[in-house]
């Protein structure tokens, strides 16, 4: 076990904070923030894995096309896709939260579940 992977450890810690919020906080908005943080943690992890010390961003400059010059472009592309996906999920969750608040006047998911369970179907 070494401590060279500080970025990755931070990323996993962030993932953990978000994951705990997502699972344990009853407030829907906090759950959404937790989900966003979970995703941020994963993206940080991925981008950190793509980094190579001493190389620059993968944009061809001055015609140099050597592997030794640029960092790995794949993680950046994947994270880009991932960020879009998490914006989409966040928007859907926020819309759901808004509707639920309109119906039940609370953001507490447990309470909402309780109230919904009492409705006749």
């Amino acid at each position: 076990m070494s401590l060279t992977n500080l970025e990755e450890l931070t990323a996993i810690a962030l993932f953990g904070i978000g994951f705990t919020l997502l699972l344990l906080d009853r407030n829907l908005i906090k759950k959404i923030l937790g989900f966003s943080m979970t995703d941020s943690g994963i993206y940080l992890f991925l981008a950190a894995r793509g980094y190579v010390a001493g190389r620059t961003a993968p944009i061809v400059t001055e015609g140099v096309q050597a592997v030794e010059a640029y960092v790995n472009p794949i993680p950046a592309g994947l994270v880009l896709t991932g960020i879009v996906v998490s914006v989409a999920s966040t928007a859907v969750m926020l819309a759901l939260t808004f509707r639920l608040y309109r119906s039940y006047h609370t953001l507490n998911l447990d309470e909402i579940t309780n109230l919904a369970g009492k409705e006749a179907d």
């Binding site: 076990m1 070494s2 401590l3 060279t4 992977n5 500080l6 970025e7 990755e8 450890l9 990323a11 996993i12 810690a13 993932f15 953990g16 994951f19 992890f45 950190a48 894995r49 980094y51 190579v52 010390a53 190389r55 030794e68």
Partner: peptide, 18 residues
């Protein structure tokens, strides 16, 4: 999950190596 993942992250190939 956190424990396993932290350990996993520490076990992975080192950061920034070519």
């Amino acid at each position: 999950i956190m424990g396993i993942l932290l350990r996993t992250a520490a076990d992975l190939p080192a950061f920034g190596r070519a």
